[in-house]
């Protein structure tokens, strides 16, 4: 095991930041967030970004990145090359399947083996940001990725939820998982916080979940106070709330970047500023880099909110 750890440490030495995207619950927007974050970070062409999808049984990243049907070229038996979108490398089990109907019916050990291979054998090059998209739960994939990445530096986890208690109860478990494996929680993102009807237009954004505007409907009601209350109770920060927007789902289905679809958004310039400040802080301490990342994610989400106005 120490041999593997040493090998992985060697491979991952060039990775400056690692962020895991987690949620106990499925279908809350982990892959959507991962894709948007990767696109957003890669907007700075001087940065190398890698997006690793470790959802082995249900990989969504190829489709969301518009890379469905792509196959990864194999140098030899073990060497894969992550697919590159300019300065954005993407790796997913989806690239290893020959048909969209192929099911990966694997138990834990085999999944763990592939995750290790993804970290060890993918020719990522120098990476500034490694974003890891995960399946729901607190099991093999999660334990393995944390274990394998312990050799490298993990900034922490961004946890995704929706407002309902049914989702929050799983997310609280995920936060407990993070505490157990000593994975720092960067913060929580609440997705699908409300729905803005495209017909009755003058809809406003849900900034406070309890201050509902007239035209906003709650499909997934926050009966226990939503992510806001959970974050207060668990002492973690809430990075943002995003309403349900049919456009986000459509962008993901088409594999386009939601952010580039709305380039005039007033937030675009401000998140470029954040990227700037983040580059400046590279020489500074890790904690300030983490802070910059956190700010960046907040602005990223705010920019998504602006797109509705």
């Amino acid at each position: 095991l120490t041999e593997i750890a040493a090998e992985l440490r060697e491979r991952l030495r060039a990775v400056k930041h690692t962020v895991l995207v987690l949620s106990g619950k499925g279908g809350v927007g982990k892959s959507t967030f991962s894709a948007i974050l990767a696109h957003g970070l890669a907007a700075d062409e001087a940065k190398q970004v890698a997006l690793l999808d470790i959802d082995i049984c249900g990989p969504s990243i190829p489709k969301m990145m518009g890379l469905e049907g792509e196959q990864v070229s194999k140098y030899s038996n073990v060497m894969f090359k992550g697919f590159l979108l300019k300065n954005l490398g993407v790796m997913s089990v989806g690239f290893l399947l020959s048909s969209p109907d192929d099911a990966v019916i694997w138990r834990g050990p085999k999944k763990n083996g592939l995750i290790k291979q993804f970290l060890r054998d993918v020719d990522w090059g120098e990476i500034d940001y490694l974003i890891v998209d995960t399946p729901p739960g607190t099991s093999d994939e999660h334990l393995s990725i944390v274990q394998y990445l312990s050799a490298a530096h993990i900034d922490g986890a961004v946890i995704i939820t929706t407002p309902q208690e049914v989702s929050l109860q799983d997310v609280r478990k995920e936060i407990n998982f993070c505490h157990k494996v000593k994975l720092p929680v960067i913060g929580v993102v609440e997705n699908m916080s409300g729905f803005i009807c495209p017909k009755c237009k003058n809809c406003r954004i849900l900034t406070l979940i309890f201050l509902l505007s007239q035209n906003e409907s709650q499909i997934f009601p926050p009966t226990t106070g939503g992510a806001e209350k959970m974050c207060q109770n668990l002492n973690v920060s809430l990075l943002g709330k995003v309403p349900l927007d049919p456009q986000i789902g459509k962008s993901c289905d088409k594999g386009q970047s939601f952010l580039s679809e709305a380039p005039e958004s007033p937030a675009t310039s401000s998140y470029r500023n954040i990227i700037q400040s983040k580059s400046d802080s590279h020489s500074a301490k890790a904690s300030s880099q983490l802070w910059a990342l956190l700010q960046y994610i907040k602005v990223l989400y705010r920019s998504m909110l602006f797109c509705h106005k």
């Binding site: 009807c197 495209p198 017909k199 009755c200 007239q214 035209n215 409907s217 349900l244 049919p246 789902g249």
Partner: peptide, 15 residues
């Protein structure tokens, strides 16, 4: 699909 309670417009949020 989601039927808006305010204007009865049905939106296919997830297509």
């Amino acid at each position: 699909g989601f039927v808006c309670p305010h204007c009865s417009e049905c939106t296919n949020i997830f297509s």
